[in-house]
């Protein structure tokens, strides 16, 4: 049982974190305040998590960043940027692989047994840069420079693109609170359309939002090669068999580029490597976060 728990450790962490970060059960009950309004919302969760979700106990870092940039008398958002910098430098996109509820949703959708779609490299590669454009333009640029007549900005990413807010906030709030339904208009229909597209894509493509659109993943990816937690390849043990690349849902070749900007550090490659050549390291020391599957040699000798 212990081995089974370790084998599924990442899924267990993802689910537990999902419940922990969205554990305000009262938000789902009739008659209660629609969302949590307590002091924990001073703190941001490290992954994408709309703070308008009825269950959300923390703030969304992307939402908080846009809110800071939207202010009429805005200040340099040192708290939010410092927080994002700290997470990025500590673990890079490890958050994407272990502590993002929307990432978990996409992974579970991908488990639906239908034929999968592999995007050709000549389309996939340039499309991966789209998330950086989303970060630069919708999260930072437009909220910073665009002003309404009232002198405030708009949270462009949250308002016009983010499917996380629609899934975690919009849909449950509208279902639970009839007072909101008269306000439904073209924007809600647009956001629902985007959400449906992401959900359908997630059934046939592994984590499409993470690959092509997520601005938070884009930000954390900037620190992949210098973060304190990294993936390391032992060149002596590595045979170049390519098992790690075949195991990777993000289409990374870990034995060639172990700390790729696209790696979400899920550890599947570490688990699957028959030569035990891959490992997580923290400050250069090996960390045992994922148990390795028995190598072919160990299986045959048993």
């Amino acid at each position: 049982m212990g081995k089974s728990i370790r084998k599924h450790a990442r899924r267990i962490v993802q689910v537990l974190w999902g419940f922990l970060s969205n554990g305000y059960v009262k938000g789902f009950l009739p008659g209660a305040p629609m969302i949590y309004q307590g002091p924990l919302k001073r703190f941001c969760v490290p992954g994408m998590n709309c703070y308008s979700c009825p269950g959300a106990l923390g703030a969304c870092p992307i939402g908080a960043l846009q809110a800071a940039l939207n202010e009429r008398h805005r200040r340099f958002p040192s708290y939010i940027l410092g927080y994002l910098l700290a997470i990025g430098v500590l673990v890079g996109r490890f958050i994407c692989g272990w502590l993002c509820l929307f990432g978990l949703v996409q992974e579970l959708l991908y488990k639906i047994p239908v034929p999968k779609l592999r995007i050709p490299e000549k389309v996939d590669k340039p499309l991966r840069y789209l998330k950086y454009a989303v970060l630069a333009v919708l999260v930072i640029g437009l909220p910073l420079f665009y002003r309404t007549d009232a002198g405030t900005g708009l949270p462009f990413f949250c308002q016009f693109l983010c499917p996380v807010g629609t899934l975690e906030g919009g849909v449950p709030l509208v279902l639970l609170n009839s007072v909101l339904r008269p306000a439904l208009g073209w924007l809600f229909r647009w956001k629902i359309l985007l959400l449906v597209l992401v959900i359908l894509s997630s059934i046939v493509i592994y984590r499409p939002f993470c690959k092509y659109l997520c601005p938070l993943g884009a930000f954390y990816s900037l620190f992949q090669r210098i973060s304190l937690i990294r993936i390391q390849v032992d060149p002596v043990k590595c045979t170049g068999c390519g098992t790690c690349g075949k195991a990777c849902g993000m289409q990374v070749d870990p034995h060639k580029v172990p700390n790729s900007t696209e790696c979400i550090r899920c550890g599947e490659c570490i688990q699957k490597c028959p030569a035990h050549a891959l490992s997580f390291t923290g400050l250069g020391k090996e960390l045992h976060l994922r148990p390795r599957e028995d190598s072919v040699h160990e299986k045959t000798s048993a």
């Binding site: 307590g38 919302k41 709309c50 969304c60 809110a67 509208v174 208009g185």
Partner: peptide, 15 residues
């Protein structure tokens, strides 16, 4: 952050 997060973000949810 708290002030923003304790109010429903109407833009975020599409309203």
């Amino acid at each position: 952050v708290l002030t923003k997060a304790v109010h429903i973000c109407m833009e975020c949810i599409g309203l």
